[in-house]
Nucleic acid binder design. Structure first.
Lengths: 338, 338
DNA sequence: AAAAACGGCGCAAACGTTTGATTAATTTTG
DNA sequence: CAAAATTAATCAAACGTTTGCGCCGTTTTT
């Protein structure tokens, strides 16, 4: 019992009209009369007609597919973002294909090439940790494939992007800690290549100067986000002459390493930690961060898709303006003593 | 500077041969001479030729796309599985499209229909929590779209599936607890609709009888996997006349709820917990499960893809045998006192 | 030496849909 | 009432690739 999907030709044959009329009828083209149009639509429905997307893609030279390249699908932040991208794209009848750079620049370059060859209509990218060169994205311009960066964005703004306002979020986090009385606050930051590291540092400085305190550069430590890197940073804080009483850490993974280490040394109660939320279950810890910066991955994903679709539908040669969309980050207080 | 991708026609024109020869040349068709073949391949390479997949899909009536339907992308287990599916499919030059049922039967039905309309070549499914009827998958047969279930599989075996040997894994878990001296062991199981619940229960019973103990049905409690459901189950154990000293719980999410509740009541030290691993960071807890059943989501994903591709490439009307692939689950001991 | 086989290639059709150009029938206009 | 405008539909080409069939020239077989 082999069913073949219904085609436009089939409908045309049954109604004794031409395929083009059927096509136009289904698209409410004005040159098809109301009577014929309704007949077409009814028959199409009753035969369960569904357009053959492959044929349409081919004909239009579009794929109705957007590509997504991100570092690691199984990181919670990204899996939520993906979830949003998928939901939003499906609503607009677009298909999504993913690929993971596993945080390697070379892999990212390959994937961009692959996506181009797959003829995606547009690309959503969260760049890898060690991406410093952006030529591979530049190349897409000549093929008219728009790119929107999200969350992990390049450090310049003549590109389209969606990201979080990490500066102000960090200010909020710092102010919260300062209000609680902390006077020496450490920061475990990410690699300098990441724009997000810059922003965190800016926020740190802004808050310090706003509160008329003195900025001590040795309290902001770069870290490669591994467990060892975290431990190194922790040790510097423990030996610091103005030992911090609170620490702002780059993300929850780093927070986990730090908490584990501090617990091992039994000094966990000497510190209050603020982190940037990636993990939903961090609050189940016994010594969770007192607050977390919520970066709303679902919202970022949605926005990124919508911007990308807008760019795809825009007549190609138009305007040179860049979308720089900022999603507000919020400080979520976990501290139950509050 | 609008670049157009190279086509076969273009190559043919430049070499003064026909498009069909180019196509055959690129595919090592025997009827094309070695000299011409190499000329074709060289020019193709130097022009960066990449086949227009849309055109091929259209021509062949295949999409080289497999659909994946699962409950929740952001659950760690699934995000890892997806990651594997993506990697494996990309190796084989297939594209993957995902959709989430969000654990609702109706949504799942809709998505299956949608996937069919998208003309996917095959489907990978992890069924939703409340799927009891499987007609929506049956329908795919007549369209010759093969389906492989993974992890969350239907409770009968005239389908293709990949799953974990949860029975033997549960036996391992139980034996481990029994060896540690526990004599009353509780189980927080999932809903009865899930095949995985059945298997856990079977394992529980097998171990009990193998060790010549008496099976007490009231020690195995079904739970809807929510926090409230977990608390209800926990209370039953606390009031139980043979209060268990160890509990096997359905998964890490349930384990989190349980640990949280037991900590609140300050009875956490009265229990040892074994869980099924979904969350990578569970071991960071202060009172983590003493052991976890590892279900190897990456491996399951890989196997599922390979089986599906095999079915896709198999001549349609052949054999009626069903793939029932079992991935061994292992018990991972977290207990540091061992 | 004629017949058969083969190697190497081109021709043309097909896949389903869209769309600019065209036609035919009807209605409106001056 | 003829010319122009409008409406409703058809025709045909196009998108890039694959593939069955046919053709021609050369080599092998009888």
């Amino acid at each position: 019992m082999q069913s073949k999907p219904t085609t436009i030709k089939e409908i045309a044959r049954l109604l004794n009209i031409s395929p083009s009329s059927v096509s136009r009828g289904l698209h409410d083209h004005p040159s098809i009369g109301a009577v014929t149009r309704e007949k077409i639509k009814q028959l199409a429905k009753s035969l369960n007609y569904e357009p053959n997307r492959a044929a349409i893609f081919f004909q239009k030279g579009k794929t109705y597919t957007i590509g997504v390249i991100l570092p690691e699908l199984s990181e919670h932040f990204f899996s939520v973002a993906i979830s949003a991208i998928e939901d939003e794209a499906m609503k607009k009848n677009y298909t999504v294909i993913f690929a993971q750079s596993h945080d390697h620049y070379e892999q990212e370059v390959k994937l961009v090439e692959k996506m181009k060859n797959q003829r995606v209509d547009g690309l959503l990218v969260s760049i890898s940790k060690d991406t410093a060169n952006f030529d591979h994205f530049e190349k897409l311009n000549s093929f008219n494939i728009p790119v929107v960066f999200f969350d992990r964005i390049p450090p310049f703004n003549n590109v389209h992007y969606v990201a979080c306002s990490l500066v102000s979020a960090t200010v909020k986090a710092m102010n919260y800690l300062l209000r609680k009385g902390h006077r020496s606050i450490g920061m475990i930051n990410g690699p300098n290549t990441l724009h997000a590291s810059e922003e965190r540092k800016d926020g740190y400085k802004q808050s310090i100067s706003f509160n008329r305190l003195k900025f001590d550069p040795s309290l902001v430590i770069n870290c490669d986000l591994t467990e060892n890197g975290t431990i190194n940073a922790a040790e510097k804080f423990l030996k610091h002459k103005r030992k911090p009483t609170a620490i702002v850490v780059f993300n929850d993974y780093v927070a986990l390493f730090l908490i584990k280490y501090f617990k091992k040394l039994d000094v966990i109660n000497n510190f209050e930690i603020v982190s940037y939320a990636n993990l939903p279950i961090i609050s189940y810890l016994d010594h969770p961060p007192v607050a977390s910066v919520e970066q709303y991955p679902y919202l970022q994903g949605q926005k990124a898709v919508n911007i990308l679709l807008d760019l795809i539908h825009r007549p190609n040669t138009e305007n040179q303006a860049y979308y720089n969309a900022i999603v507000d980050a919020d400080l979520i207080i976990n501290d139950t003593n509050e």
